[in-house]
Design a protein around this nucleic acid. Sequence first.
DNA 1: ATGTGACTTCAAGTCCGTG
DNA 2: CCACGGACTTGAAGTCACA
Lengths: 85, 85
Amino acid sequence: MEIREIFARNLRAARRANGLSQEELAHRADLDRTYISSLERHIYGATIDVVDRLAQVLGMEASDLLQRSAETQEPPSPDPGKDQA
Amino acid sequence: MEIREIFARNLRAARRANGLSQEELAHRADLDRTYISSLERHIYGATIDVVDRLAQVLGMEASDLLQRSAETQEPPSPDPGKDQA
DNA sequence: ATGTGACTTCAAGTCCGTG
DNA sequence: CCACGGACTTGAAGTCACA
């Protein structure tokens, strides 16, 4: 498992645990929406600077986002379902 | 404390704990000698790719190198009192 | 609300040499 | 063995338009 994938998964998981869309997260971390998307698709190897900025917004430590088995807080899991009318 | 400094300190400490010179570490991690030096002087913000590669050589996890303190855990500094009405 | 290709720019990372 | 400068190449950082 590459570090980029670890980070990508943790990022997506943490983002959802916080109930944020890529847009919302991007806005709060002062980054571009498509850049978050790229990160979650492990297109880039982010710098620790970006990792840290994201971690702060998500209320966690930068090291948590690189953890091989990250324990995110129990997400409310809104479970939007897929039946969008 | 910026993330670069955290990383720089952890890197240098881990490198010495492993009894490696900057040159040796650079060689084993397949990185440049002067780059390790730059990292320890927090000139650059390394990518998670580099952090991971370094961690492997040092026998630790990438997340360990970004840990604010390897052993001592500090209490979650609460808001430093913002005189906000 | 997300994925993706194309694009530009500036920092990451390399290589040289010096004290 | 390490700090540090300069010049260089590669890829991350940051933004759009469109699917």
